[in-house]
Amino acid sequence: MPYGMRIWGPDGTLQLDENSFTLRVVLSQVVTFTGTRQVQTFSVPGCGPDNASAVVIPIGNYGEYDRQFEVAMGAGVVEVANWMRNWGSGTYTASGSMRLLVMRFR
């Protein structure tokens, strides 16, 4: 075992070792946009599309005309936009605040 952690249960059986799937939140950040189109970039060293995932969660009530922010995971960064960048027909721009969560998995 080059590195890692092992956890045994009360009966002595191995419950978790260095080969187990784990998930860890590496960034939790409130992202706020005004009405203009913007992209915000956050640094997440060691994270990328192959070992991490990012989501945004609305804060508070979600109104009828509210729009979801868009996230894109890159190598060491996550970008959050307040419009659908890959949808040419989309004219909606979101505003308000949402929580960004970046989770690294193994």
Rank of each mutant, 00 (worst) to 15 (best):
M1Q: 12
Y3I: 04
G4Q: 09
M5H: 05
M5D: 09
M5F: 11
R6Y: 00
I7T: 03
W8T: 01
G9L: 03
P10F: 07
D11H: 09
D11P: 00
G12K: 01
G12Q: 01
G12F: 03
G12C: 05
L14D: 00
L14G: 00
L14H: 00
Q15P: 00
L16Y: 03
D17Y: 04
D17V: 08
E18T: 08
N19P: 00
S20I: 11
F21L: 11
T22E: 08
L23R: 14
L23N: 04
L23V: 14
V25L: 06
V25I: 06
V25E: 08
V25W: 10
L27F: 05
S28P: 09
S28C: 07
S28H: 07
Q29E: 15
Q29K: 15
Q29P: 10
V31P: 02
V31F: 03
V31K: 04
V31Y: 05
F33G: 04
T34H: 05
G35S: 14
G35N: 14
T36W: 02
R37E: 03
Q38G: 05
Q38D: 13
V39I: 15
T41N: 02
T41H: 00
T41M: 04
F42C: 00
F42W: 10
F42P: 04
S43D: 14
S43Y: 01
V44G: 02
V44D: 03
G46D: 06
C47A: 13
C47E: 01
G48L: 02
P49K: 09
D50M: 11
N51L: 08
S53N: 07
S53W: 08
V56F: 00
V56T: 15
P58E: 03
I59W: 00
I59S: 01
G60L: 07
N61D: 14
N61K: 15
N61H: 12
Y62D: 03
E64W: 12
D66W: 04
R67P: 00
Q68G: 02
Q68A: 08
E70M: 12
V71E: 02
V71I: 07
A72S: 11
M73T: 06
M73Q: 08
M73N: 04
M73W: 10
A75K: 09
A75P: 08
A75I: 07
G76R: 07
V77T: 14
V78D: 01
V78W: 02
V78N: 01
E79Q: 15
E79M: 13
V80P: 02
A81W: 05
N82W: 02
N82M: 04
M84E: 12
M84A: 12
W87E: 14
W87T: 14
W87M: 15
W87A: 15
W87L: 15
G88R: 12
G88M: 13
G88K: 09
S89G: 06
S89R: 12
G90Y: 12
G90E: 10
T91I: 07
T91K: 02
Y92C: 02
Y92Q: 13
Y92N: 10
T93R: 04
G96R: 01
S97L: 03
S97F: 05
S97I: 02
S97E: 11
M98E: 09
M98K: 01
M98R: 12
R99I: 09
R99E: 14
L101E: 06
L101F: 13
M103Q: 08
F105D: 03
F105K: 01
R106T: 12
